[in-house]
Design a protein around this nucleic acid. Structure first.
Lengths: 207, 207
DNA sequence: AACTAGTTTAACTAAACGGTTAGTATCGGC
DNA sequence: GCCGATACTAACCGTTTAGTTAAACTAGTT
């Protein structure tokens, strides 16, 4: 890695942290500079300005969600396994990338105005992957016909909310140990998988 | 309503909008002043400073979630009806109070540092209400034993995510009409109720 | 060592920001 | 009408912010 790339990487890493903690408006370029160990003008030299830096961070942090998801899901055999892989992939992504939920949530809170076009396409693709899982399961008679987006909102909403509520959960009494802590524990992940499956299954007994 | 109360109400209303759109750091006191139709110094006269104003807005926008919820849930007869009332109450609250999700989400993104103690108590109480619904249902053999917090995260996570994703949903293709729009439609609300019930029901057939 | 291009810096700048000040307006009581 | 208290204002203030600049530094090449 050459010098410019190394410096840029340091800047992006620090910016990811600071933007994750404080949001775009709350983040200070001076703070990002201090955390990356470079002079503030270096950021302007390599990146351009605060907004472009934010865009880089968003692009970086979001990665290629849909691509990774598609790969993981593809390796599973049945719709049930694929749905589990769907949930597991999000849990793993968020556990690996703790800066993602705060950044996403602030963006969503602001109406997604700054989300790059590629992020919107990714979301389209993610919902599309879930749609095909559900469709396949429905064709086999294992899943009920239902709205992919609503299922997606319940799964992802829970994962994100779970993740960011970590400091608040610590203040809520009477929560078992696996419901505390910053990471989504294997127990919680398993429960989310179980509930996702339960939600989509064709009901065997009509009310 | 006397003069001071009227001015204060105008300030709080404008502040609620601006904080909802831009977050704490992004909101400009000048903007809040302009929207409320008063001079900026009037805000400092009546409220004190930006942070206190934010606290007022948060206190105002969060109201007494748990109290309203408890009342609605209490009027229902069976655990199933109470769970439906639980979902319905959140949907109604958020449809009535569109500024709540963005504000909550930003707060959660920042680790809940600015959430008033009363808000944490409310969350405690909300999860407690759900816990008693689930417990009651489990005692009757209708509901499975499960974690109230995870169920809560799936319901509330979906409702919040649904609400704030409105501008992005508009850009996602192939969504049916009732999944578009700013409000959570009755169809979507009904589906969330149905899925919540499905999630918590005692499974009639073991795998 | 000299040169060059790229990189980084300390110091600086204009604009923006939350907050303040001195003065004015309004209201109710006497 | 006068007065005091409260409410409101235009103009102002000190600090902070994102961004800029000229000079210094670094590394590679000849």
């Amino acid at each position: 890695m050459d010098r410019a790339a190394e410096t840029t990487a340091k800047i992006i890493a620090a910016a990811t942290e600071v933007f994750s903690e404080a949001g775009f408006s709350g983040a200070r370029v001076d703070e990002i500079a201090a955390r990356s160990g470079v002079n503030k003008a270096t950021i302007y030299y390599h990146i351009g300005n605060k907004k472009v830096l934010y865009g880089e961070v968003m692009h970086n942090v979001m990665g290629n969600l849909a691509m990774h998801l598609a790969r993981d899901v593809k390796e599973a055999q049945t719709p049930e396994q694929r749905l589990k892989a769907y949930v597991r992939n999000f849990v793993a992504t968020i556990n690996l990338n703790p800066h993602l939920p705060p950044i996403i949530m602030r963006e969503l809170a602001s109406g997604g105005k700054n989300l790059p076009e590629v992020a919107t396409k990714d979301m389209n693709a993610v919902v599309g992957i879930l749609a095909s899982i559900l469709e396949d399961g429905a064709t086999r008679g294992d899943f009920a016909v239902m709205s992919p987006f609503i299922v997606h909102a319940m799964i992802l909403g829970a994962i994100i909310l779970f993740k960011v509520s970590s400091p608040i959960r610590a203040r809520i009494e009477v929560l078992p140990e696996e419901l505390k802590g910053d990471r989504i524990s294997p127990e919680v992940a398993a429960e989310l998988e179980r509930l996702a499956l339960k939600m989509v299954r064709e009901e065997r007994q009509k009310d």
